[in-house]
């Protein structure tokens, strides 16, 4: 019998002798598998499977505001490029610990990302404003002149 792949190994002879141990082992494995399934993004709605920093896009009047959470990053760690409707964001985070330190818990990680999003309008490239404050990057993108809505007088 092959058994379930999420349950660990088939019981050994010793485990059968101390049946309880192996039963608990299997329960733990199952629980861990379920927890992993809950915490990964498999069931999420995100468009990025590789886990780039997530991005929010807002409308502020006629401008578009893009925000990204980038804790610990310096200005020089992030690169922003705009061309037409496309906004490209790339960067890198590096986490270092001193040598001779024992690590008890590790939830933050080093990563690099490179992502391009297509905006709803072309951007007035000379009036883009970007700030990185308290670990949040905010980019304000005003629409290009020819993309601004024009009011039409009704005759």
């Amino acid at each position: 019998m092959d058994g379930w792949s999420i349950l660990s190994k088939p019981p050994l002879k010793e485990d059968i002798m101390f049946g309880i141990t192996s039963a608990f082992d299997n329960l733990w494995t199952l629980q861990r598998a379920m927890e992993n399934a809950m915490h990964n993004d498999y069931f999420g709605l995100s468009t990025v499977a590789d886990g780039s920093p997530s991005m929010n896009i807002f409308r502020d009047g006629e401008n578009t505001l893009v925000t990204v959470e980038l804790p610990g990053l310096n200005r020089e760690d992030v690169k922003l490029e705009v061309k037409g409707k496309n906004l490209r964001l790339s960067g890198k985070r590096k986490i270092d610990f001193p040598e001779k330190a024992s690590v008890h818990r590790r939830e933050r990680s080093s990563y690099s990302f490179d992502r391009t999003v297509r905006l709803a309008h072309e951007v007035d490239e000379s009036n883009i404003k970007a700030e990185l404050k308290d670990g949040v990057l905010a980019v304000l993108l005003p629409p290009a002149e020819e993309h601004k809505p024009k009011s039409i007088a009704i005759s």
């Binding site: 980038l70 804790p71 001779k100 008890h104 939830e107 670990g135 949040v136």
Partner: peptide, 19 residues
């Protein structure tokens, strides 16, 4: 998200709290 490291003198916590 938190990292915790221990050295001989200190316990150090790093916590990501963007915003």
């Amino acid at each position: 998200s938190t990292d915790i490291i221990e050295t001989e003198q200190n316990l150090t916590l790093y916590m990501d709290m963007p915003g």
